Computed example of a mutant assay.
Amino acid sequence: MKIDIFTEMQSPRPWSKDHEHRIIMETLEQAKLADSLGYGCWWQVEHHTAEEFSYSSAPEIMLAAISQHTKTMRLGHSSVLAPFRFNHPIRTAERAAFLDHLSGGRLELGLARSTIPEWRTFNIPPDRTRAQMQQAFEMLPKMWTQERFSWKSEEIDIQNVPIVPKPYQKPHPPLWQACSSVASFEQAGRNGVGALGVTLWAPREQVQEWIGIYREAIRRCERPVGEFINDQVAFFTFVHCAETDKQAMENGAAEAAAWYTNGSFTFFEAKESFLRTYAEEQALLNDPAGGGLTGQFLRERANRSPATTRAQSIIARIMQGEDVPSQEVFDGLSEQDSLIVGSPETCRQKMKVYQDLGIDRLLCFQQVARLPHEAVMSSIRQIGKLIPEFDRP
């Protein structure tokens, strides 16, 4: 299992006068340290108008800067928001190719649909987001490998144009898809691209099911969107390592986990997102044609009636507007192994759980909420010492 690192670039209130400059410079410092310690890849998210929750609004620029201060660590754009009003596919292809050259061929590129508030800000019809992301997946490898490119669909008409430059990596960088539902894991596998998921609120059994859907879909993949199949599953979760379990809690780990949980559900308008996902799943469940692997899985899950975990009950309370104490949120998530927090030995044991699930890349989300920069740097060092135990030839 590769050990990677993931960042949102968070800056909660109260703010100092230089908080924006500071979070950018601290991110660069953290990336340089991660590179020196042997982390596999630095993954930079894309969000807009997220304020406290994420200052990573121009990840391609942040990654370009990081590329000039690192040597071996790969650079993951996780993920380009694919609907066309966010990023036209030509611009995505151009920027990615430039970044691949600047980094000496270290780019990994993911695509995502984004979420309700960002769709609203950019005036994007939600019902077209999955189809537009699918088109982007099919277009990008052709733009990177064909001398001239053409494409015609309902939203885009491109006629015989050269896309320059071409990527440094041949035939092109590995492709990934951000996944948060059963349908998206199936889509990633069907496309032959890597799956980027999150375990922070999912019990182990659910993660295992997602991985199973992805593996089966990619096993059946006969026409990958790219020139090769990227058969990898990656998950990110909150990671904070300190000298002792007690020190990790004194650093503010419980408060950070609760702040991120509440912030995610607020920014992403989680209640509405869950309802939209539920509606999509119901359509697949009732599809006369069967709904593919996702429809089959949903019917099997309905027959099982899986038990609700304490963490899921807590999340439901948060979505109803209840102010759940930080320690209770942390305990619920920790109980289902959704967090990796504690001493090096505690973190080692929890990381082994992820390895046993069959995850190929663990994205350690370490700069979270109000955790001090010094504590984040120390955590990056402590996890760095564990990398050789997991990332073996």
Rank of each mutant, 00 (worst) to 15 (best):
R301F: 05
A311C: 02
R130H: 09
A270Q: 13
K271M: 06
V80Q: 03
I340S: 04
G105S: 01
K246V: 04
P12I: 02
Q187R: 07
A217K: 00
K71R: 05
G342I: 03
H21G: 13
T346P: 02
Q355C: 12
L196K: 00
H172N: 10
G290Q: 03
K32G: 15
A136F: 00
Q320W: 00
A31N: 01
R370I: 08
S378G: 04
R299N: 08
I211T: 05
T7M: 07
A302Q: 13
L284K: 01
T266H: 10
I218F: 08
M133E: 02
E118T: 03
L102R: 08
P174Q: 09
I66D: 01
P171K: 07
P12H: 00
R91W: 03
F235L: 13
R299L: 06
R223P: 03
N87G: 09
E154A: 11
S334K: 06
E154M: 07
E52H: 11
W176A: 02
L175W: 05
T70F: 03
W210R: 06
R130C: 01
G212Q: 15
R223T: 13
E250M: 15
I380A: 02
D100E: 00
G292P: 08
I218M: 11
R113C: 05
A112D: 02
P83L: 14
A270P: 00
F228E: 12
E227G: 10
G292V: 10
N191H: 10
Q336F: 15
G332A: 11
A97M: 11
T7S: 14
I218S: 05
A217W: 01
E60D: 11
A283G: 08
Q10H: 10
K32N: 14
Q44W: 09
R361I: 12
E29Q: 12
I66R: 00
Q132A: 11
I387D: 06
S16C: 07
T199W: 05
D287S: 14
E216S: 13
A131M: 08
L284T: 00
E328G: 09
M319L: 14
T121G: 12
H373A: 10
P393A: 14
V164S: 11
T244G: 11
S379E: 06
R120Y: 07
G295Q: 07
G226R: 03
A279Q: 13
F84D: 00
V353L: 10
P165M: 12
V182Y: 15
E8C: 09
W43N: 12
S57I: 02
R113K: 14
L284Q: 02
D245H: 04
D337L: 12
I211M: 07
F122M: 09
